[in-house]
């Protein structure tokens, strides 16, 4: 990525579409400062009333796992089926559980 100091930095945009839901990554944009990033996100990513709340994060502050680590990160969860509710057999007739 070019680090030309004359370019507005890149921001990652997270939008909560409804109260109670999580903020979801929707894309990115450029802005000179956080306030501008929030306003641009409002104009760019909520033109069709998609938003309730906006988070902006400088793209360079996002640290990502490496794809080659995927096996060691996520595969161990493969054999932990007991983390999933369907693992358990419920007695017939029991309700609301």
């Amino acid at each position: 990525m070019s680090n030309n100091p004359n370019n507005w930095p890149l921001w990652e945009i997270f939008i909560q579409s409804k109260r109670g839901l999580e903020h979801k990554h929707v894309g990115s944009l450029h802005a000179a400062d956080p306030q501008m990033a929030i306003e641009n996100a409002r104009d760019v990513y909520t033109r069709r009333q998609e938003g309730n709340s906006i988070w902006v994060v400088l793209a360079e502050h996002v640290h990502a796992s490496r794809p080659e680590d995927a096996e060691s990160f996520y595969d161990p969860a493969d054999d932990k089926v007991y983390r999933h509710p369907t693992f358990y057999t419920m007695p017939e007739g029991a309700k609301y559980i």
Partner: peptide
């Protein structure tokens, strides 16, 4: 933005 994920800035 999609191009930027491949390491080429919008400016370029």
């Amino acid at each position: 933005s999609a191009v930027e994920t491949m390491g080429t800035s919008r400016e370029q």
